[in-house]
Every structure is written in structure tokens, then in C-alpha cells.
């Protein structure tokens, strides 16, 4: 049976159904309904909910819970996510699984509270210091807000890596019918590293400070090997009408929804347009895009930013076809009509 749910709340319920045992967060619009929802539901489920004194505290609580082998998450919006970057770098260094949700709003700075996609670079290219990657998932509907936490935890545990769900204010705030499908709540991957008390066994250590000669370089080589495997195996995207289409729209999240409308309008006008929607932003679906460079004549990337993901599209297309860009920054949102105009210009 379908249920009318708000994106933020669907994400909360999805995380609970995925077995999330501890939530730590600090309020910020436009993700407040998620924190509020967890404050009620986590207690009902007799799990941990904690409103921390700051974003820094929340991410470090997640770090601690994860090190103890607990499925843990935090959520925030852009300025709050910036504050969490130190913790994220430490967690990536320590190889700790966890779910981090960013319901993006306009920036830079405190910006505004409108939906935005301007944190793409921060999410996919590191964000904090050091050579590391988060795995990044991009939901575009309330249904996916519900289903992605389970996918995120599974990936996080399989690869021992923090995973970010990169949503935006629009998908967080809309209400849509959704199906409460069964999601995976098992713990994936081995737990031989978990700090759960060393009585009767040798103590374990989790740390990101590696001062011994060559130890940090060796650790980085290991991390890069892992990232290579993730890049090879976990690229995900959704393709609609891309086969033999002349123009391929590339967009994620809310932009992809507007592109979907624009694609239908363009096809009604007889234009050959398809849509490729990355579901993973890191690893970026390079293979799927590269494959389309054979048949497509041009690509048009649409973002609620001044142009960030378009760089990855260009790398994937690798000069074989022109890559165009249309975006609105600062909380602006591209309209169907604007995208249609851009398509007609090509």
C-alpha cells in the first residue's frame, strides 16, 4: 500500500528499516524534519537518538559509534556538512562505515534554505583533507529517499567507508506517494576490526595517525586500491531513452526530475533526447556515459549549481562529443522551459 510521505521523513524511516541503531544530529533547514522524525521514531524503536551540541560533536559521535560496530548516521545541510569535514576525513582514514546525509541548500556561506546542488565537489572530491573518497548516492524521489539508506549502509559496511546521501532541499521537502518496500537490514562485511571489548583477545586499534616510516603511504596505497575496486564495481545510473538519442541530458536529484519533464516535452516536439541520471555520484558512472559517446551527438549537463558535475561528464566523454552545461546557482532552480531552450540551441 502506498503512503504519502515527506522526503526527509522517508529517509529517516528508510534508515530505521535498514537497521540504523544510532542517530546523531544538530538541526538545520531544510533537513529538520529528518532530525525531528528520528527524535520520535528512534525512541519508539528503543534505539539511540542524540541531538548534539554541534555538528562537530555529531560527526565524532558517529565516528565513535561506528568504531564500536554500530550502524550509525548523521544528517545536516550544506553549512553543517562543511563543519563535519574533519570528522569525515578521519573516518575515511580509519575506514569506518557510516551514513551521512546532506540535504543541500544554497551557498556559499550560510547562503539560503532553498534546494541546491552546489556541494557536489565537496561530496565527491574529498571535502576534508587527504586523499580519500566518500561513496555518494543521489536520490531524486521520496521512494529513493526511503530506499537509499539501506543501500548506503550496505556499501559502507562492504567497503568500510563512509557513504553520503547527497539530497537537496526540494527532494527533502516534497511529499509523494511511496511504497514501504522491504529493505536490507543485515550487517555486511566482516567485523574483525570492531572495538567491542578485548577481554580474551588481543586489543585492536583504529586510528588515522600513522607516524611510522612509510606507514601512511602504505595505508594510502591500500585505500586507493579499495577506491579502484569501488570505481570498477559500483557505478550506478538510470537511463531513459538514451539508446540512439542525439542529445543526452545528464542530471541527478531534483535537476533530473526537471530534465525528465524537459525530455518528454522535447520528444513531443520530435527531438531525439534521452536522460542519464547518476545514482552514484562517486563512483561516477563513467562507463555508461563513455558508452553513449558512440551514438550521442552531444551532452547537456543540468545542475542546481554553477557547474560542478559537468567536469566529471567532460572527463567521461573525454572530448569525443561536445558537453554543454546549464545551471542555476544560489538556490535557483532550472525550469523545464529553460532546459528545452538549451536543448533547442544545440
Amino acid at each position: 500500500m502506498k503512503k504519502l510521505m515527506k522526503g526527509n521523513e522517508a529517509l529517516g524511516e528508510g534508515a530505521i528499516k535498514a537497521g540504523c541503531a544510532a542517530y546523531f544530529g544538530y538541526p538545520i533547514t531544510p533537513q529538520n524534519e529528518l532530525t525531528e522524525y528520528m527524535s520520535k521514531r528512534m525512541l519508539e524503536e528503543k534505539r539511540v537518538f542524540l541531538q548534539s551540541e554541534s555538528e562537530l560533536a555529531a560527526i565524532n559521535m558517529v565516528l565513535g559509534a561506528s568504531a564500536a560496530g554500530v550502524k550509525a548516521m548523521t544528517s545536516s545541510s550544506s553549512p553543517g556538512i562543511s563543519l563535519k569535514q574533519e570528522g569525515l576525513s578521519y573516518m575515511a582514514g580509519c575506514e569506518l562505515p557510516a551514513l551521512i546525509v546532506n540535504v543541500q541548500r544554497g551557498g556559499p556561506g550560510l547562503g539560503n534554505i532553498a534546494g541546491s546542488q552546489a556541494d557536489y565537489f565537496q561530496a565527491t572530491k574529498g571535502g576534508g583533507h587527504g586523499d580519500y573518497h566518500l561513496i555518494v548516492l543521489a536520490p531524486s524521489s521520496v521512494q529513493e529517499m526511503f530506499e537509499m539508506p539501506a543501500q548506503a549502509f550496505a556499501l559502507a559496511e562492504k567497503y568500510r567507508n563512509p557513504v553520503m546521501i547527497l539530497a537537496d532541499g526540494v527532494v527533502g521537502q516534497i511529499l509523494e506517494p511511496m511504497e514501504e518496500v522491504k529493505v536490507d537490514s543485515t550487517y555486511h562485511g566482516d567485523r574483525s576490526w570492531v572495538l567491542d571489548g578485548c577481554q580474551g583477545r588481543a586489543p585492536r586499534k583504529i586510528r588515522s595517525l600513522l607516524m611510522e616510516e612509510g606507514a601512511l603511504e602504505e595505508h594510502n596505497i591500500k585505500l586507493q586500491k579499495k577506491y579502484k575496486v569501488i570505481k570498477e564495481q559500483e557505478q550506478r545510473c538510470q537511463k531513459q531513452n538514451t539508446e540512439k538519442a542525439d542529445i543526452i541530458l545528464v542530471a541527478y536529484g531534483t535537476s533530473a526530475r526537471v530534465c525528465y519533464s524537459a525530455m518528454l516535452a522535447a520528444r513531443k516536439k520530435g527531438l531525439s533526447v534521452g536522460l542519464l541520471r547518476p545514482l552514484t555520484l562517486w563512483p561516477f558512472p563513467v562507463k555508461a556515459i563513455a558508452e553513449l559517446t558512440g551514438t550521442a551527438k552531444a551532452f547537456l549537463t543540468v545542475e542546481m549549481s554553477a557547474g560542478q558535475m559537468v567536469e566529471d561528464v567532460k572527463l567521461a566523454v573525454n572530448g569525443r562529443k561536445p558537453v554543454h552545461f546549464y545551471g542555476r546557482a544560489g538556490g535557483g532552480m532550472p525550469t523545464e522551459e529553460e532546459i528545452l531552450k538549451e536543448i533547442e540551441k544545440i
Binding site: 502506498k2 531544510p30 532541499g169 526540494v170 511529499l175 506517494p177
Partner: peptide, 14 residues
């Protein structure tokens, strides 16, 4: 939704 239609609700949340 009860009638099986597609529907979205988007509040201004300023």
C-alpha cells in the same frame, strides 16, 4: 494518492 494518481506536494518552506 488514494485514487491511484501520481501526485507531488511541494511546500514553500521559507
Amino acid at each position: 494518492m488514494l485514487e491511484g494518481k501520481f501526485v507531488t506536494f511541494f511546500p514553500a518552506y521559507g
